[in-house]
Amino acid sequence: MNVGDKIKSLRETAGMSKGKLALEAGVSAAYIGQLESKNKQPTVDTLSRICQALGITLSEFFASDHPPELPPEVRRVCEKVQKLPPDKLRILNDVLDTWVKSE
């Protein structure tokens, strides 16, 4: 994993400019640019402040980019759910809520 690429991806996902992230993390926008262009590596303290500004923890930052593999039966259900129209999806959600609450 490249730290600069991850910062840029998280920043863009959060809809933040380099300037806003820099301001909230207590660094300069130029420094954020250097991190994202892989010219610098942040200290743990600085990365922690960047993560805080992004609303995530250091653990979340370093977590795998790949979600855990779903069991086959869950994948099949997900494939079917994706094909449901909105009205049927709401009904299914209500049924699932009822089942989960009753356990």
Rank of each mutant, 00 (worst) to 15 (best):
M1D: 14
N2G: 08
G4F: 14
G4K: 10
I7S: 06
S9Q: 12
L10H: 06
R11T: 07
K18W: 00
L21M: 04
A22N: 10
A22R: 10
L23D: 11
E24H: 07
A25K: 08
G26Q: 01
G26E: 01
G26I: 02
G26K: 00
G26W: 04
V27H: 05
S28G: 06
S28N: 01
A30G: 11
A30E: 10
A30L: 05
I32E: 02
I32P: 03
Q34Y: 00
K38Y: 00
K38S: 02
N39M: 09
K40Q: 02
K40R: 07
Q41V: 07
Q41Y: 04
P42F: 00
T43F: 02
V44L: 07
D45G: 03
D45N: 03
R49V: 01
C51K: 06
C51E: 06
Q52F: 11
A53C: 03
L54P: 03
G55F: 00
G55W: 00
G55V: 03
I56C: 07
I56G: 04
L58T: 12
L58A: 07
S59V: 10
E60R: 05
F61A: 12
F61G: 10
F62G: 02
F62Y: 09
F62T: 02
D65F: 13
P67N: 03
P67E: 09
P68S: 12
E69N: 12
E73F: 14
E73A: 09
C78F: 04
V81K: 09
Q82L: 13
Q82W: 06
K83W: 07
K83A: 15
L84R: 11
P86N: 11
D87R: 14
K88S: 05
R90L: 14
R90D: 15
I91K: 13
V95T: 08
V95A: 06
V95R: 04
L96W: 03
D97P: 06
T98M: 11
T98Q: 06
T98V: 11
T98A: 10
W99S: 12
V100Q: 13
V100C: 06
K101Q: 15
K101N: 14
S102A: 15
